[in-house]
Design a protein around this nucleic acid. Structure first.
Length: 391
RNA sequence: GGCGGGGUUCCGGAGCGGUCAAACGGGACGGACUGUAAAUCCGUUGGCUCAGCCUUCGCAGGUUCGAAUCCUGCCCCCGCCA
């Protein structure tokens, strides 16, 4: 016969990659108390993107069944930084920055999680330990065990540097599990090693071992690599509707089924053409992260700007200085859209700049203010500004 | 402690006395095309008062008509052996 716990377990194990060990989740659920489901966060990266939401959605399912999500802010590790040469991506952060990042993170995660059922913890609380305690922790694991991890193995074999601190990270993460008594830890499949190590370390400390749940990795908008901010192929959950919509449409068709599965938890609609399916996907994502009205507006604007080649309904206004003489266009473009004046000149030469729909050329360096007043300045396909003379 | 390899434009990585604002690849941006902010093709990718000028090749000096390239000192990084 199947119990309630078995049912819950099979529901929660749905679309996971690993749920280890076998039967462990059902046993935990059978305890009948709210489980503590852990997720560790890197406080250096406050930008939550769709890739993270795959794991967050699973956490939400736990919450909806009465369990508690324990978010751990890795403030201690961030404060220490990573001394190995390859670590420009791990700057040392101040306490205030970490707090601000954590707040921002929770705010963004709340688009998926139920903020009422989150326990927020900072790992400096327990990692700021004595040497003696550190020794106890490091004794639980051997170097060989750590070098088992795929990326360490590759780097070691390739004679690339691995700092002791990097080796220590998995141990610190594992100790987090000891400290918060986690029943379950979630992560992407790339976290599998660390999550399993958590079990070993918990056992060494005589704590009940956590269940390891891994989720598939979401590919980025390039359809190739894992979605990440550093790869520049991400869609942030806080991005404006228009951005989310447009970026979703840039997804290669072949990556669509995966996105439907991982983000919406359903198969791709079988009857739609790729084009309609992608628009439907984009709409659903904007609806979830913003609202139905925003989604409709984003769809309309996309149609207008990219299909019809028209200007958007709403254009940001910008004022230009009302000098006596002509206005220096490269300077104006640089001010409006960023970049250098030289870059603006190149854009002009490439026919990328339009004024009220008319393409300007490399010779249009100085324009009379009268021509600019009230006009729409466009650079490329998607950047628009309405010009107003400063009073 | 010993031996060896390095620090170049956003990233990776060529260049090793002039033809170097610096190959090539990636990324980014622009154009054409498209259902698409995809793919593909073409182009751009230090700054500026832009047919010219100015500032870049770890830092500081030096040699030379001329240095990313040679010399001296310094700083930093990496691997191997012990």
């Amino acid at each position: 016969m199947t119990t309630r716990a078995d049912d819950d377990a099979s529901f929660l194990a749905r679309d996971t990659v690993d749920c280890l060990p076998d039967g462990a989740l059902a046993r935990k659920l059978a305890l009948g108390r709210p489980l503590r489901v852990k997720l560790g966060l890197d406080p250096t990266a406050p930008d939550v993107h769709l890739g993270h939401t795959v794991v967050l959605r699973k956490l939400r399912e736990f919450q909806d069944r009465g369990h508690v999500v324990v978010l751990i802010i890795g403030d201690y590790t961030a404060r220490v930084g990573d001394p190995s040469g390859r670590s420009s991506s791990r700057p040392v952060l101040s306490g205030e920055q970490i707090d601000a990042n954590a707040r921002t993170y929770v705010e963004q995660a709340a688009k998926v999680l139920d903020p009422q059922r989150i326990e927020l913890r900072y790992n400096a609380e327990w990692l700021d330990m004595s040497m003696e305690q550190l020794f106890a922790l490091t004794r639980t694991t051997t170097v060989a065990q750590l070098l088992e991890r795929d990326d360490f193995a590759k780097r070691y074999a390739g004679r690339e540097p691995i700092s002791i601190l990097e080796l220590l990270y998995p141990l610190m993460q594992a100790y987090d599990s000891v400290a918060v008594r986690s029943d379950v830890e979630l992560g992407g499949t790339d976290q599998k090693f660390n999550l399993l190590l958590g079990r070993d370390v918990q056992r060494a400390y005589g704590v009940d071992e956590q269940v390891v749940v891994t989720m598939p990795i979401l590919p980025g908008v390039d359809g190739e690599r894992k979605m990440s901010k550093s790869a520049g192929n991400h869609i942030g959950v806080s991005e404006p509707p228009q951005e989310i919509y447009g970026k979703t449409l840039s997804l290669p068709d072949r990556a669509m089924p995966g996105w439907f599965e991982l983000l919406l938890g359903e198969g791709m609609p079988p009857r739609l053409t790729p084009r309609d399916a992608k628009h439907a996907l984009a709409r659903r994502l904007v609806e979830r992260l913003h609202s139905a009205a925003d989604a409709a507006a984003a769809a309309a604007q996309f149609e207008r700007v990219f299909v019809q080649g028209d200007t958007p309904e709403e254009i940001e206004q910008v004022s230009f200085a009302a000098t006596d003489g002509p206005v220096h266009l490269p300077a104006l473009i640089a001010d409006c859209f960023g970049g250098s004046r030289s870059d603006a000149r190149r854009k002009l030469a490439q026919g990328a700049v339009k004024l009220d729909g008319a393409t300007l050329g490399a010779d249009d360096i100085d324009l009379a203010p009268e021509r600019l007043e009230g006009a729409v300045l466009q650079v490329g396909k998607r950047r628009f500004r309405r010009l107003r003379r400063a009073a």
